[in-house]
């Protein structure tokens, strides 16, 4: 069993299909919807956590992609310009998901992208503007 987060972007014409239902029913994947923005007739974006057998998740992702929906792993959509980070800690103040933490020994910023829920609060919280999340 593995657990992984994906961002899905729907084109306007696919907004009314029950993809998550098929993921559960046909691929035996446990899904957790962490964030959803759906604008019928325009576009939709979804942050999904998929839990299941590795091969099932791979097949499920292929199934989604075959319907002209982009499906990319969350960490590929998050950019943190680490080399410019000054380890001030401002982003950790707003990260209630626990993805951004200060190491209590070195006081360096640690970013566990797998815990991100795309609340996007770190983007304005960083005084150096070092975060970018491509959700939409």
């Amino acid at each position: 069993m593995i657990k992984k987060r994906y961002i899905l972007n729907f084109p306007p014409q696919s907004g009314d299909k029950a993809f998550t239902y098929h993921l559960v029913k046909e691929y035996d994947i446990r899904i957790n919807i962490l964030k959803a923005e759906v604008y019928p007739g325009k576009r939709g974006s979804l942050l999904l956590e998929l839990q299941g057998k590795k091969e099932n998740i791979e097949k499920g992702v292929e199934y989604i992609k075959s319907h002209k929906i982009t499906c990319e792993s969350l960490d590929k959509r998050i950019r943190w310009k680490e080399e410019k980070c000054i380890d001030c800690g401002n982003c950790t103040a707003v990260c209630f998901a626990g993805a951004l933490n200060m190491d209590k020994q070195s006081w360096e910023l640690e970013f566990d992208k797998s815990k991100c829920v795309v609340c996007e609060l770190c983007i304005p919280a960083c005084p150096l503007n070092l975060f970018e999340i491509d959700f939409r």
């Binding site: 000054i86 380890d87 001030c88 800690g89 401002n90 950790t92 103040a93 200060m102 070195s106 006081w107 360096e108």
Partner: peptide, 13 residues
Amino acid sequence: IRTAPVASLKKAR
């Protein structure tokens, strides 16, 4: 309450 620094202890060190 959860705390967070807003100044860099790493850099201060």
